[in-house]
Measured scan of single mutants.
Amino acid sequence: MQRVNMIMAESPGLITICLLGYLLSAECTVFLDHENANKILNRPKRYNSGKLEEFVQGNLERECMEEKCSFEEAREVFENTERTTEFWKQYVDGDQCESNPCLNGGSCKDDINSYECWCPFGFEGKNCELDVTCNIKNGRCEQFCKNSADNKVVCSCTEGYRLAENQKSCEPAVPFPCGRVSVSQTSKLTRAETVFPDVDYVNSTEAETILDNITQSTQSFNDFTRVVGGEDAKPGQFPWQVVLNGKVDAFCGGSIVNEKWIVTAAHCVETGVKITVVAGEHNIEETEHTEQKRNVIRIIPHHNYNAAINKYNHDIALLELDEPLVLNSYVTPICIADKEYTNIFLKFGSGYVSGWGRVFHKGRSALVLQYLRVPLVDRATCLRSTKFTIYNNMFCAGFHEGGRDSCQGDSGGPHVTEVEGTSFLTGIISWGEECAMKGKYGIYTKVSRYVNWIKEKTKLT
């Protein structure tokens, strides 16, 4: 034993070699072989497995989906700052455009905790909710729209109204504003409101030439003092309507412009014939205590009207009353817009006519005020429907199939267009061939041609 100890002390290297040989010859039971080890760690190889990531292109799944990435790591994937920024906006807080917040056709661009709407022409605001041009839906104005110097929408209202708090709607500024039905039992019968379409306001006024200088022999019209197929109006439903009495009662109609003036057809009036105007009328054979009678003290036909040349060209006249009318729910003026808007309103496509005229061709006159909704007829169809001249200051309205029309005794009465609950004068009943005849239409004086003249002559002093 002493000898062994001496050998170990003198030859430590020998001992180490012996131990190493023993270990190498022993069977290893701690580690699995290569094949079995792979069965336990069965993990798919990654895209760049075996390579240094710093030297390969980034992978979106590896960089940002398996674990949260930084902007720089995302930049490695896209290799483009702009594309990385677009991805980053949604990656950080989701897609803010998912709810489609942009209105009126706006395009949404996502941002971090926010979004941006790219608005089409005519709109602005956070969600493109603000109209900035009158060309689109009248700028959301209830009545009139004008573009300011910086191309912003400025709404306005006709006389007797003021802008509401929203700067879009119009509200009454006087007790009985024009064009409004205020009798409670008839307010439910107000005709369907007309909503502004998209309009090209630059070209809204037709490029028409008034044929002022045409000389033409007097034409022989049949029954051209021209509501057939209409309905009984309720008291106060058309408070701007008046009836004219002269040699015979209810020979023509008219509309209240203001307390002192009536507008009617020029062919209705004769110099030297006494005319009485009755406002607030409903049943011409009954006294309903809503009527107001006034005498006409002055007749002003349009300066281009000449019955000797043509009885229905420039067929418009103004009547001055001896005493002002007292405005109330049964006696209310009709609204008159400017030339541009009167023309736009007419193009809405349908209007209402009213009167006490004959209820059928050569038949009896109506006792109760009649009204009828009539569609506008395109000019080409209008011209083809008659052998008589249709001037540019006239328009056609009615039904091709016949059966409904204005008729004798309705002449001078109103053709009105309702705009968001307020009625505007767009025409004056003038003439036609018979009444409600198939293929024939009622012919009306186009008020847009005469609004400046009306307003100039009827100013209240």
Rank of each mutant, 00 (worst) to 15 (best):
G403S: 14
C268V: 01
A366V: 06
D378T: 07
G253A: 11
M394C: 04
G50W: 06
Q185V: 12
L367P: 12
M394G: 03
T29R: 08
E98H: 09
F348D: 08
N304R: 11
A265F: 01
D110N: 09
K45F: 05
V242C: 03
T158C: 05
R140M: 07
I300F: 06
V416Q: 06
R43K: 10
L163V: 10
T218L: 10
R404V: 06
E66T: 06
F71Q: 15
Y305N: 03
G439H: 10
C170M: 00
N203C: 03
T332A: 13
L23I: 11
E98Q: 09
G94R: 10
N306S: 04
G58W: 04
K339Q: 14
I214V: 12
R75Y: 08
G363S: 12
T84Q: 09
A207Q: 12
A380Q: 08
F196C: 05
T381P: 05
M65V: 15
S11H: 12
Y450D: 02
T342G: 04
K68A: 08
S182K: 06
Y330A: 08
L20Q: 02
G351N: 06
A149D: 14
F224Q: 06
H289E: 11
Y450S: 02
G179F: 02
T190D: 09
Q143M: 07
E259R: 06
V353I: 14
Q96D: 08
K339E: 13
A436N: 15
E98P: 02
T426V: 00
H282N: 12
V202Q: 12
E281L: 12
E159A: 10
E61A: 15
I136F: 14
T194I: 11
F87H: 15
C145I: 01
N59H: 15
W261M: 02
G254R: 01
L318F: 00
I297F: 04
V243H: 06
D110V: 05
C178G: 00
D131S: 14
L23K: 02
Q143Y: 02
E208N: 11
Y371M: 15
P44I: 11
D223E: 09
H302C: 02
Q370R: 13
D200F: 10
Y341R: 06
T287Q: 12
S99T: 07
G272T: 11
L52N: 15
K274W: 04
C141S: 00
R3E: 06
E142A: 07
K362Y: 06
Y391C: 07
R62F: 03
V278H: 05
C157Y: 01
R62L: 04
K459R: 07
N393W: 05
L321R: 01
V248A: 07
I297E: 05
S430T: 13
I112V: 13
P375Q: 10
G439M: 05
T85S: 07
L14V: 11
K89L: 07
G442N: 14
I136G: 04
N104I: 00
S411W: 14
A337Y: 00
Q167V: 05
V374T: 06
I344V: 10
V202N: 13
I112S: 07
Y330M: 09
N100A: 05
T215F: 08
Y371R: 14
D33L: 10
K274H: 10
P175D: 06
S217Q: 13
E76S: 15
L244T: 02
I284F: 12
S350F: 12
V242Q: 00
C407M: 07
Y22R: 03
T264G: 02
T445N: 04
E76H: 15
N135M: 06
I112R: 07
F176L: 07
F399I: 13
K109I: 08
T461W: 08
Y115K: 02
C382M: 02
G363Q: 10
K457A: 09
R449V: 13
N104M: 02
C97A: 01
P301C: 08
R75M: 14
V374K: 03
W431H: 13
N147H: 11
G409H: 14
L425I: 04
N310A: 10
A207R: 06
K137A: 09
F251R: 09
L41M: 11
A149G: 06
R75P: 10
C69R: 03
E340R: 09
P120L: 08
G398K: 06
E82S: 14
N310S: 13
S114R: 10
T422E: 02
W88Q: 15
Q241D: 03
I40A: 15
V278C: 04
C145K: 00
L319C: 08
E86A: 15
V277S: 00
C102N: 00
L41P: 15
T458L: 03
T287H: 06
Y201S: 06
N42D: 13
G413D: 05
S99L: 05
T445M: 13
K455T: 08
R43V: 15
S184N: 12
D232Q: 09
G432T: 14
V30T: 15
N104V: 01
G398D: 03
G355H: 13
S365W: 07
H34I: 11
T190Y: 07
S99K: 06
P177M: 01
P375D: 13
F348W: 09
G357T: 14
L103Y: 07
K168E: 05
Q237E: 05
S204L: 12
R180D: 02
L327C: 04
Q143H: 11
P333T: 03
G106W: 00
V77P: 15
E53V: 09
G246A: 09
T218G: 09
E67G: 04
E285V: 10
Y444T: 00
E61T: 15
P175S: 10
S99G: 06
R43H: 09
E82K: 11
R83I: 12
T29W: 06
